[in-house]
Design a protein around this nucleic acid. Structure first.
Lengths: 380, 380
DNA sequence: AAAAAAAATGTGTGGGCACACAAATTTTGT
DNA sequence: ACAAAATTTGTGTGCCCACACATTTTTTTT
């Protein structure tokens, strides 16, 4: 048996010898003169193989560079993995939460042939009871893995407990609860995003310009805005970046135009030195519009590439947006679960996404950016 | 035959009916009472099917929501696709060109089971003859698709001609030659990156500060730096961003420390008002170091997250880096070719990558950023 | 109406792997 | 030394699809 029959190969013009096909378990079996069953047993550590042959087979695997064909493997196994996601209901068809959701759904669709099925659940981000109800619905599905954005901490911990009882792995995206047994967290480093905002703000203001940190919170919304503010302030405290400026923060517990107008007007009259406003969530567009209407030359930094923010940025009313790859967070969560299911691969506990800095001039590249072949390609 | 046997399903606590497995051609065949062969003929438009059955089958495909199992399909087809890439040889193990190369190689490895094989070729970016030689080597491999970074225009056009004769599709990454029959271009919008740099520079300088545009070019290197400079200047020209400042550009035809020191010193003495330097390629670190040594308080913008640039940024000597996702460019090129091979999917002719704005504060997130399961997972 | 030609339909194999089960081999017990 | 038990090894079927080839049915011809 010569090398040519062992390793399928052919040569092109003398120079190259190209291995065209992957080696299969059959190749290994032929090489060692055993049956594919024995090779299979070695590969999967199923035992029932004499040490002598075991050794020979393992050598052959090395020599012939065998890697199992993943396609054939999943096909033969025919396992099914059910993923459930539990995210806040988007405020509109273009709301922030559509993006992680799309990321999850499209990626799940991409992995359909690998046995991944996915079921979306959403909850009213202003109603804890809605959340609790949906957690039960998720559990009823008996998922193999869960992706969730835990806005409500208490209820989430109850939910998590139940998942742990049933040994269902779960991934936090966008936000997380510390000290839990989550498979991992995929999302922004909140403090870091405050730092980034701080740096950007300081780079476009003069050292004496005052800054307003604005928390626009409807109802009892998420507490993690505090961390962003902390990061923002820390940037100015840490180095000698503070200058002589004042940095104040206010919280407006509403996202209604009228409420905002009243509060902001009050503030700006009292603090005429304010030249920069940092909105700690994705609602910068509301403020930007206010500044535009009142012709206030104020620099603005906010979060997320939402339609409204994009518009205000193009109009020159927002200077920087920080984006945390919401689509990708969802996509990555699905991929991570998949690799966990299939390869038992444990991901890093914390996977911070890049904090993309968006300005008018690079905005379009982010908007038009599409990966090739995300789903919908299956039809001919 | 009841619904349960037609669509494999089971119910959980009355409420949900979950389709667990995908429907197969066998399901379709059973449904219409024909053999799988006939179904197959319809799916692939092979003809030889009576119109009556054809219609029925197509209906069944709709009703049962049939999508061919991509895994089984590729397994059965067993096609092999050979991709060759032709990139400049990296200047070091951490040189810029390692990144697109890694992107290509890792992605190709991911797609190994799908029949993708890949062969890397690199050329000396300072020697046209090296390039020509390597183009021949690529052709000898008889690839099914080519990924290339066409630094040398003339030689590239000759190469491309030959590829077209053999009907081998090719993708430009990082740089491109206009008006060719390339499958697509994946890379930065050069002019746009000039714009971005312009905006960033203007945002951190005072309106009277002078700016130097620096082209650090070894030998007859790429001409497209001119486009970046053009974009940069256009930004200042277009709006009222120019102020009273002077914007000059010089080209230093060397990357040797001594040469740079001489030229820069000459320049700074003549132009003491220079407060910002924009380096139009990835060699900003050289200049940053010079400024550091000479204690010049100059703002700096450059390209690419190379080790040296990262270091200078962390030391505070570079303010902004613009990164054009080099790894991703390679990864995307492979994916695009794959989808073209398999689905005959024609990608958009131009796919601009996002221009990431890197500052000290978000740098680490980009560095640590890894997709799950890029290759190397295959081993257990 | 029977034979020949054409069209429609069915069957079988292979792709690489996983796993259950059958067969062969070795070890143990008496 | 021989049966029984334990272990090792081989075989066959299925996963889903693609495609070549065999078979059946329909149409055409004389």
């Amino acid at each position: 048996m010569c090398a040519h029959t062992l390793i399928n190969s052919f040569s092109i013009k003398i120079k190259f010898v190209v291995k065209t096909k992957k080696t299969t378990i059959q190749d290994i079996a032929n090489y060692v003169n055993v049956s594919v069953g024995t090779v299979d047993r070695v590969i999967h550590n199923r035992g029932h193989v004499s040490t002598a042959k075991r050794k020979k087979i393992m050598e052959a695997i090395e020599i012939l560079d065998f890697n199992p064909n993943f396609l054939a493997s999943t096909l033969a196994l025919g396992k099914q993995y059910r993923i459930c996601s539990l995210l806040p209901r988007p405020s509109s068809t273009q709301g922030y939460w559509t993006l992680p959701k799309d990321g999850i759904e499209q990626t799940a669709a991409d992995y359909k042939d690998y046995g991944i099925t996915h079921h979306s659940f959403d909850y009213d981000p202003f109603e804890e009871s809605s959340y609790s109800k949906k957690t039960l619905a998720v559990l009823e599905m008996q998922p193999d893995g869960v992706i969730l954005a835990p806005l409500f901490e208490e209820e989430s911990i109850l939910f998590i407990k139940k998942l742990e009882e049933k040994k269902i792995p779960y991934i936090f995206i966008d936000a997380f609860i510390p000290n839990q047994k989550n498979l991992c967290y995929i999302g922004p480093d909140l403090k870091g995003s405050g730092y980034v905002a701080g740096k950007l703000m300081s780079s476009i203001l003069n050292s004496q310009d005052d800054i307003l940190i604005l928390n626009l919170v409807k109802g009892l919304e998420n507490s993690h805005l505090g961390i962003i503010e902390k990061g923002f302030r820390e940037f100015f405290d840490s180095t000698n970046n503070k200058g002589s400026r004042k940095i104040k923060s206010i919280t407006i517990p509403s996202i209604k135009k009228e409420d905002i107008t009243i509060e902001l007007t009050k503030y700006h009259i009292k603090n005429p030195g304010t030249k920069g406003v940092f909105v700690t969530n994705s609602r910068a567009s509301l403020i930007a519009h206010y500044h535009f209407l009142h012709e206030l030359p104020v620099k603005m930094i906010g979060f997320d590439m939402l339609q409204d923010n994009i518009l205000e940025m193009k109009n020159g009313n927002i200077d920087f947006l920080i984006s945390q790859r919401p689509y990708f967070q969802g996509a990555m969560a699905v991929k991570t679960l998949f690799h966990y299911f299939v390869y038992k691969k444990i991901p890093p506990k914390i996977q911070y996404v890049p904090l993309d800095i968006i300005i008018d001039q690079n905005l379009d590249y982010y908007i038009n950016f599409k990966e090739p072949g995300t789903a919908n390609l299956v039809q001919e």
